[in-house]
Amino acid sequence: MNATDSPSLPAVPDTVARRSPWGEVLHSLVRSPTFLTGLGILLFWVVCALLGEHFVPYDPLDADIINTLAPPSAEHWFGTDQLGRDVFSRVIVGSRDILTVAPLATILATIAGTALGLVIGYFRGIVDDIVSRVLEAFMAIPVVIIALLAIVALGTSKITVIVVIGLSFAPIIARTVRSAVLAERELDYVAAAKLRHEGALHTMFVEILPNVIPPILVETTVRLGYAIFAVATLSFMGFGIQPPSPDWGLSISSNYGMIGGGFWWTVLFDALAIASLVIGVNLVTDGVHGAFND
């Protein structure tokens, strides 16, 4: 239909029809208040992680031993901790470690999970049966327990945390990819690729992969939320991110012992920062999920 046939209709439907599927998704994303709110929160913390140290009033690692545990004031907005470090500066810069470790873990999980899911979804049969059972067994163990064991075995470092979280989340992504691949592999274009005698690798990664990107993208954003949850929890437990990093979970774990003394400002702002980041990522996830399923 074009404008000359029915002049009464506005031209808008035409432009909508011409938009690519990805343009469609983008279009509904920028109009979703949920997504935009989440993105705003997330971007705020990303900017803090990248540039925070240039605009905070104090060096987050600078101890001021005559001014310890000072309550919030005009000088120290969020007060100071037990070493006299400025809590406001620490909260701002504290986003850095979690925003490095959690996304890297998520990327690792996505790559490993996608490759695994493509293989078991494509070959099905006995490969699928065996691998799927192993993945299910793995998924039944809580991440915290896997992390505890791995950290006892390998020692604590950021790399260990990335690998542990990445590998514990990979089975979940593999399961999602597998079910998407199972639907795709019955379609004509896969049969065509087989008729052209394309190899299994080519069919999986060149033909099928581009068509299962949307569910992978949604699952990745979901996992990012859980990865932040897991990294924060592990650094609270004393694993992974180590002092003197101003990381939020770490700060809470080194300060909550004094909570009974009423030094609430040493933990409250870190807790709120984690809460805002987690909720921000989940709002983004909700938006992305909605945009792909409209």
Binding site: G225, F229, A232, T233, F236, G249, I252, Y256, I259, V267, L268, A271, L272, I274, A275, V278, I279, N282
Partner: peptide
């Protein structure tokens, strides 16, 4: 979606 220790701290 909030980690338990975060809600725990706030509740404490």
């Amino acid at each position: 979606v909030l980690p338990e220790f975060v809600t725990g701290i706030i509740l404490i």
